[in-house]
Design a protein around this nucleic acid. Structure first.
Lengths: 142, 142
DNA sequence: AATCTACATTATAATTATTCTAAACTATTG
DNA sequence: CAATAGTTTAGAATAATTATAATGTAGATT
């Protein structure tokens, strides 16, 4: 989704009515320089603050899933207790900081292409993603 | 954990009392030729059948987590709605079949070593794992 | 072998994350 | 500006997981 722009039009193009809540969500999610990783709860807090009024959890879930379906958000699974979404929807790799629970996108050139030598008959590869878990040097690793 | 063996002794060595339930869980989980992927619910069903009596969900959760803490099970996150455990606790890669929701371990030689060119200052790499999502050729991909 | 004690198991309650529901609301169309 | 179809909302429902407190049991002590 394009930055710094008229989200009202963008939403309409997607076939989603540009409601107050959705426009604000777009601003929070897509009006930024860099990739953004968040949980639903993060987002509910941010939107409520920005809107200066409460937003329903259900609305946030609905809208996040609508954006996901349209290809503007992507779900990332790191561990079972946290579900992240990512505004970078391309196939890409991640660093995960086990100290801070922070998720960091890998750049295009941070990891060499992965060479897969096995293939599964009748199946084609849809995505190849690498997760690199890091932690501070002097800490007990997981 | 070693196959085909006296799990009573094994459990004791781990500092876990060899209860009926734990011994049965060991038999179901570790008495097998190949890696096994399962959800908690899968396991509850299997254990109950094997034991011919009910087992409490809480016990299965407790014991799975105890085994995980001791390093005999590993949790795998594929997507947010399913939490898998894996009897293969080494760092290894996976194929995930999006048609059947089946998780398949990669062999040692199925994927070439991943070359990571970026490093994060003050952090060391704890693990590098690749997830290859596959689906049948003639299907709409995710 | 009987007893003791700490750890385990259990049923159930509590908690958390997510989805559903039905009523109230609102953007769009005519 | 009225009609209507899609949206938001609070709250209920569901599902997964964890906590609780009573009961049971393995292993040590007598």
């Amino acid at each position: 989704m394009v930055k710094n722009s008229n989200f009202v039009e963008k939403l309409r193009e997607l076939g989603l009515r540009p409601t107050r809540q959705r426009v604000k969500m777009c601003e929070v999610l897509f009006n930024r320089e860099h990739t953004f990783h968040f949980t639903i709860n993060d987002l509910v807090k941010m939107i409520s603050e920005e809107l200066n009024e409460k937003i329903s959890l259900a609305t946030v879930y609905n809208t996040v899933h609508a954006f996901e379906k349209k290809g503007y958000l992507k779900e990332i699974s790191i561990n079972s207790d946290k579900s992240y979404f990512d505004t970078n929807t391309s196939i890409h790799h991640h660093f995960y900081d086990e100290d801070t629970n922070e998720l960091i996108d890998c750049g295009e050139n941070d990891i060499d292409p992965v060479n897969i030598k096995k293939n599964i008959t009748g199946k084609k590869i849809n995505s190849v993603e690498v997760l690199v878990k890091v932690a501070s040097d002097n800490q007990n690793q997981k």
